[in-house]
Structures are given as structure tokens and as C-alpha cells.
Amino acid sequence: MHFMKKLALTAATVLMVSGAAQAADKLRIGTEGAYPPFNTLTKDGTLVGFDIDIANALCAEMKVECEFVVQDWDGMIPALMANKFDAVIASMSITEERLKKIDFSEKYYNTPPALAVPKDSDMKDASAASLKGKLVGAQSSTTHSEYAEKKLEGIELKLYPTPDEFKLDIEAGRLDAVIEDVTVLGEWLKSDKGSCCKMLTLLTPDPVINGQGAGVAVRKGETELANKFSAAIKALRANGKYKEINDKYFDFDVYGGE
């Protein structure tokens, strides 16, 4: 009986097509929850990670109440544009392509992409000769997948919904290399789950493809909100809160050059 009740409750809650009247001070923040160490879901459903801590700090700084909405990466920008949330704090890079559709705050971190390969790989570097004919995995809809498509010549690109899937596949030996943010790869290789693989090389970011680092995304035209976020990021940098969060996850400053 208990189960039926729960079932009915779930049905009732999910069925609500809410005319989400927007409370003025509650900000809905979209994030992915599948991108450690920046944002992940623990098994009991709480969001943790650098993005989450930064988002909470930003909201505290801006004195607004925030709630998180978990959204798959592939649908992140459409969902933002469709008003499912008001801002995206999910390590989204500020690129020209995306700026056509949405606006961004200033960056809150910037790290380069890198390639990881199985430990027994014969690849020496990211030169065209060593990449030729290699199967390379990337998360779809990311700057890294764009980078792989445009800059890594001669590869065969495989796209996955989240980094978790290409990690499974390179571990299984299906991929010759994966391209992803260096800190994400580093975190994974450090853990015992990443014992299959090693870092091959950092890649030189392309300003057009990789953009200017990760920023807070808002809907096109909501400049005021974007500026508020930019100011809050600056404030966090100044008051040491950023460093505190940074040091919790990394042993170097992920903010990158000024």
C-alpha cells in the first residue's frame, strides 16, 4: 500500500504543469551533475563540486536565494532559452557560437583541454601523424567535441552524452584517446577508476573554439543579471572566498590568467 501511495504521489507531483510564476528573489540555476570535480550528483541526489560551491558563493554574494535544476548537458542551452532556469553554472565555456544564442558573465575559471590515452598506448603526442585513424571520444555539445572535430585531423570522433560513458569505453579499450578538460581528466586519472589511462598532453586552446573560459550563462539580453554575476565573481576573487573554494578541489588556481 505504501508503495502505491508513493507511486500516486510521484505521479501527482510530476504531472503538475506548473505555470512557474517567477519569484523575484529566487534564482533557478541549471547544472549538469555529471562532470566531476566541477559538478556531480552524489548517490543520495545532492549536488557537489566546484561549480556548486561557486554558485552558492555567488548567490550569497548577490544576496539572492538560489535553487539548482539538474539538466542533461545536451539540452542545457535549449532549456535555458526555454526558461527552465535563469542561469547555467556548469563549466560552460564562453564561445562565439554560444554567444549568438545566449549571454555570459565574465569567466570564473579557465583551464585548457587535454588528451588522455590508455597506459599502453603507442601515441606519443597530439601530432597529426600520431592521431591518424584514432578513435577519439568526447562529450557531445562541448567545446572539446568541436575542438576534436576541427583541430584533430584524421581522427574518428565518437560522441557521448556524458564523460562517464567515454570513460567506460576507453577503459573497455574501445577508444584510443579521449579529449576533455584537463582538470576533469586529472581528477579521473587520480582516482582508482582512472587506473586504465594516463594523460597524454595538454592541447593549445583555440580562442574561437574554446573561448575565454567558463562563465555563468544567462538568456540573451539579460545583461543586468550577467553583470551582477560578473561583479560577484570579482568580489569572490577579491575577498578570498574563491581561493578557499579553489583550494578545496585543486592544488593550482583554475582561474587562469587575468
Binding site: 510530476v14 504543469v17 506548473s18 505555470g19 512557474a20 517567477q22 535549449p78
Partner: peptide, 27 residues
């Protein structure tokens, strides 16, 4: 439906009621 209904629904609700509507993955 997931992307289209959201765009369409928002557009209609915006013009009629001035609010937005949430079409979640269940609906």
C-alpha cells in the same frame, strides 16, 4: 515534443498570461 512544446508553450503562455510554463520530461 520536448523542445518544440516548450518553445511553443512558452510563447503562448507569454502572450496570454505573461508567465512561462514548465514542460518537464514526464509531460
Amino acid at each position: 515534443v520536448y523542445y518544440g512544446a516548450q518553445i511553443l508553450g512558452n510563447f503562448l503562455f507569454q502572450t496570454v498570461f505573461g508567465t512561462t510554463i514548465e514542460i518537464n520530461s514526464f509531460v
